[in-house]
Design a protein around this nucleic acid. Structure first.
Lengths: 380, 380
DNA sequence: ATGAAAGCGCTAACAG
DNA sequence: CTGTTAGCGCTTTCAT
């Protein structure tokens, strides 16, 4: 019996105008609506508690104003601080722009059914944000042809034409190297992330090694071992490092989890982190600060990364929309105003290979070193 | 230039049938469609890569096939293992039934704008699942009148008519009490969850105390102190306990985080967990197993809780739909078949106060004790 | 400054 | 067994 939700027509009737007028007002395209009419309609909307149906709004534009976040099929991806921070950033920015986000986990069934494409095709979502994607996600190749925006967060696949947004891993590597060198360390090992599976893991490793080389300290290959981004493997990797090279004074770990593993390895081998052995992590997850001793680590601002990823996505969606509707972009340009459009070099040559994602490559999210107590100074 | 996604009409035309027929086939209501037609249509669907638009499908039924998960505004709610496990369960069950989930965080703006009601009214989502809700969420009262289903996960608000689903906290309290008693402990303290804010926290505390009383061991009031479900406060609470009653041999903590805090407090006061002092947690988050020493704790299966919550939600949505469409429920009953409808006592009296959520109270999610090494046996 | 009308893609009576 | 018809609630030309 409860009267069903009011429709735009109810509002129109009750305010003595046409549905068109109401629509124009709702969508802020009300330059041309008299303020008398507008306030009257607004009042009715308020009185009737009218909420435009998202479903109906989206039908004509085929947009659900929803973004999908695709998580990798790791046991507890939802409970991971790394993903958590990124998601937080994405969520906050999306909510601000009245976008919703939905979560998907890239399980086998998800991949097999090509759900990542289907949710785009059936208009469930307007764009895809991939977190924790690795080279094992071969199926990502399917996406390179999609006409809907798609962003790989914190990894890059040079072989495919996929947009991505990254933290400044090269800088992170340099910061760690500089710090360790400055503190007098010369015998240094590294527990790296999954080599050849994650582009950014290699970026970090290479930057670290190269910078150390610039300082004149060389790291032999066997002093860089893969810790698979996890505590257990990280512990084993560190143990191996310490066993093969007992005179190591410092270890740089590709993420905080592995650094925590290294803490354990050190303890098990009778070494004291922060006095006897220095460890630098990378992430600055909450666990780093509460570790014993508090961990010196490179802070990668994942929240900001999430915000940036979402911002980029929304910008792409905005462009797509205007693109689809007309080429009025050019006309709008001269209107100037507080536009955030990417400045393009006026005479820039059109690239030979046309990329689907029109935005210029995204900048890197800045990083910084957070000094705590896991690094000893070897200087006199 | 790219031809836009095919519509149901394209499929119909290409297969020489009407859209209705295609629709009937898509929706499995195809009892009456000749298998010849059906396979022909199916083939076309496959060839055209046709995916029905969710937006269009939902418009008539006003359903988006999406569930919202509302998280509390804690700093890093997304990164919390507790929420993570529940979300995992919800997600898995939802995906299985072709539902999507969207995430919301109950921030001030979310509450002020009554977004929790708006997303229902604007057909963004079909139902709401609240995680981590406490008595501070006074605005939940608004929801008690909603005609869309809504479930409070792992808390109960006796004062309002809100459906909830809970872990078996009374049993958890009893298990902890029995275990500690069986190991010979007689001087026991408790670090409890936020008293009077979380119904289930009090359930746990009371069950623990009562069971201990049944065993003849009384716990004075000052031996139960609030640790606010967090590490820091938990540590302080445990420290206080240990200070006021140095001869305490065991502490039961209302969740694992507080138990971890208690570990720290013990260490700081020179007591050794697992030899010198016994601690029992509650949750069995991953951190419990990796604690030093590994923590004995009551396992609350949050993944299952999530699954159950989602199942209940979907069941309610199913009922709502059939309810809305007609009273054919009765007729359908005689058709029997593998129906999962709740068996109702035939002559059951209609309850005086009509509740909006028609399902019977949900059962409790079972719990069990996981014995590790944080409890000493005091028996000879 | 405002309205009429067509259409987005699907579902659901009702016919036949 | 299948097709016709009429919406679902909103947006969007195009008129006026």
């Amino acid at each position: 019996m409860a009267k069903s939700r009011p429709s735009i027509r109810d509002v129109a009737r009750e305010s003595g105008v046409s549905p068109t007028t109401v629509s124009l007002i709702i969508n802020q395209v009300d330059e041309r609506i008299s303020s008398a009419t507008r306030s009257r309609v607004l009042k009715t909307i308020d009185r009737l508690q009218y909420k435009p149906s998202r479903l109906a709004q989206g039908l004509p534009s085929k947009s659900s104003k929803t973004l999908a976040i695709i998580l990798p099929d790791l046991h507890m991806a939802f409970a991971d601080a790394y993903f958590g921070e990124i998601i937080s950033g994405i969520y906050d920015h999306a909510a601000e722009q009245d976008y919703r986000i939905t979560l998907e986990v890239a399980r086998r069934s998800f991949v097999r059914s090509k759900r990542y494409l289907n949710i785009l095709d059936d208009c469930s979502v307007d764009g895809l944000l991939f977190l924790g994607a690795t080279e094992e996600h071969r199926w990502l190749e399917d996406c390179s042809g999609s006409d809907r925006p798609l962003i790989i967060v914190n990894n890059r696949f040079p072989q495919w034409d996929l947009d991505s947004i990254l933290c400044d891993y090269p800088m992170a590597g340099r910061l760690a190297a500089d710090h360790l060198f400055a503190q007098g360390h010369r015998h240094i090992g590294m527990v790296c992330g999954p080599s050849a599976k994650v582009y950014t893991a290699d970026e970090l490793t290479n930057a670290f090694i190269d910078r150390l080389a610039e300082h004149g300290v060389a790291i032999r290959d066997r002093l860089v071992v893969d810790g698979e981004f996890n505590v257990g493997p990280g512990q084993r990797a560190a143990a191996q490092l310490l066993a093969t090279e007992p005179n190591l004074t410092a270890i740089f770990c590709g993420n905080d989890k592995m650094a925590l593993g290294a803490y354990q390895a050190a303890r098990a081998m009778g070494r004291h982190v922060g006095t006897d052995l220095s460890i630098v992590g990378c992430d600055d997850l909450p666990a780093a600060a509460t570790a014993d001793p508090p961990m010196t680590t490179v802070r990668l601002n994942y929240y900001d990364l999430g915000v940036a990823a979402c911002a980029r996505m929304l910008r792409r969606l905005g462009l797509a929309r205007s693109n689809g509707n007309a080429q009025k972009t050019a006309d709008a340009a001269k209107a100037a105003g507080p536009s955030n459009t990417d400045a393009k070099a006026p005479g820039a040559a059109v690239p030979a290979k046309t990329h689907r994602h029109v935005l210029p490559p995204a900048g890197r999210i800045p990083v910084r070193l957070v000094e705590r107590q896991s690094v000893v100074s070897l200087n006199v």
